[in-house]
Simulated assay, not measured.
Amino acid sequence: MIDFAGTSLSAEDIVDCLRRNLQIRDVCQQIIYRSIIEQAAIEYQIEIAPEEIQSAADQMRYEMRLESAAQTLEWLSEQLISPQHWEQGIRDRLLLKKLQNSLFSKDVDRVFAPNRLDYEQVFIYRIQVPYRPLAQELLYQIEEGELSFYEAAHLYDVDEERRLRCGYDGRLGRWDFPPDIGSAVFGAAPNELLGPFPVGQSYDLLMVGGFLSAELNDETRGAILDRMFQEWLESEFIHFSYYQNHS
Rank of each mutant, 00 (worst) to 15 (best):
H85N: 09
L138N: 05
A40D: 06
S105R: 10
A152I: 05
I32Y: 00
E144P: 02
R91N: 02
V27F: 09
E43N: 12
E38Q: 14
D26I: 10
I142V: 15
Q71Y: 06
R61I: 07
E87T: 08
Q128W: 06
D109P: 04
L139D: 09
L94G: 00
G89L: 13
Y119V: 02
L76E: 02
P114L: 10
L99F: 06
E143I: 12
I124H: 07
V27L: 09
A70M: 07
I37V: 09
E38K: 15
E74H: 13
L96I: 12
R61P: 03
L103C: 03
E74W: 08
A41L: 11
D157T: 11
D159W: 14
Q121M: 14
Q128V: 15
Q128S: 15
S105D: 03
A49N: 08
D159T: 13
R91Q: 00
R34W: 11
Y119M: 01
R110E: 03
W86V: 05
V108C: 06
E38F: 08
P114D: 05
R34T: 06
V129I: 15
Y125I: 00
S105K: 09
E161Y: 10
Y62I: 08
V111A: 01
R110Y: 03
Q88G: 07
S82W: 12
I48H: 05
Q59V: 09
E160S: 11
A57S: 12
M60N: 07
M64R: 15
R65M: 05
A40P: 02
W86Y: 14
Y119P: 00
L80M: 08
E144S: 12
I46K: 07
E143W: 10
A41E: 08
I32C: 00
D159N: 15
E51I: 14
L134A: 08
D107Y: 15
R34G: 06
K98E: 03
S82M: 09
Q121L: 13
R116S: 01
E151Q: 15
S77M: 04
I124V: 14
Q59S: 11
N101D: 08
A57H: 09
R65P: 00
I48G: 03
A49V: 12
C28N: 01
L94Y: 00
I90N: 01
L95S: 04
M60K: 11
E151L: 14
L76W: 04
I31Y: 01
P50V: 10
F112Y: 13
L117N: 06
S77H: 11
I124R: 10
L80Y: 10
I32R: 01
N115C: 01
S82F: 10
D26T: 12
K97F: 04
I142G: 07
I53W: 03
A57P: 01
L99P: 01
Q136I: 14
V122S: 03
E78V: 07
R126T: 10
E43I: 12
F149H: 00
K106P: 02
I81V: 15
V122R: 05
N101P: 02
I127R: 13
I48A: 03
A70Y: 05
Q141A: 12
F123Y: 01
D92Q: 13
L117A: 10
I37L: 02
